[in-house]
């Protein structure tokens, strides 16, 4: 099923273009040229966010934050093994992915923690990356409430994921 989605979309677009008497090749080249400009313009935003988040992660500060918040997590009955991943999910997609694999190998793919980690990774996005990429590329400085709201949504997502795994499995 999954293998049909992309070919179908490409097929549909090309066929529709030909029916409407479009020069599909010229359109493609025109768009690809513009794509190069857009792609190059996003590199500084990628570099900036990777640079700063890698410094923070490598300093060990995240581990420190996790261990100092442990009593609170226990009080809230939040599985503490998930916390580092939940904390990193909005900051770095790669870091949270490797923490998910870590949880897989430590506790098992189909364990309670493995299921929460999978759901979390699949259902939420790298909020900070998306925000800095999208706003950074068009030069927006004042992002108003977007970051708070997005992080609040992430928190709601994390709580929902944990609750659901408790209910379903």
């Amino acid at each position: 099923m999954n293998n049909y989605i992309l070919p179908f979309i490409v097929f549909l677009i090309v066929i529709y273009g030909i029916i409407k008497k479009c020069n599909v090749y010229d359109s493609f080249i025109k768009g690809a040229k513009e794509g190069i400009e857009i792609a190059i313009s996003i590199f500084p935003s990628i570099l900036a966010i990777i640079f700063s988040s890698r410094i923070l992660i490598s300093s060990g500060f995240i581990d420190f934050a996790v261990s100092s918040l442990e009593p609170i997590l226990e009080f809230l009955s939040f599985p503490k093994e998930i916390f580092p991943m939940a904390l990193l999910r909005p900051i770095s997609g790669n870091a949270s992915l490797s923490l998910m694999l870590d949880i897989f190998s430590k506790y098992g793919v189909d364990s309670y923690l493995g299921l929460i980690a999978s759901t979390l990774q699949g259902s939420t996005d790298t909020t900070l990356y998306v925000i800095s990429l999208y706003f950074g590329t068009i030069g927006i400085r004042k992002i108003k409430y977007s970051l708070y709201a997005a992080l609040l949504v992430d928190l709601i997502g994390i709580i929902t994921a944990i609750t659901l795994v408790n209910i379903i499995f």
Binding site: V10, I13, I19, S27, A32
Partner: peptide, 17 residues
Amino acid sequence: TIVLWLGIMTIATDSGL
């Protein structure tokens, strides 16, 4: 991927799809 998909999407833009 960005270059490829903007190419494909421009076909969809130009054709009115």
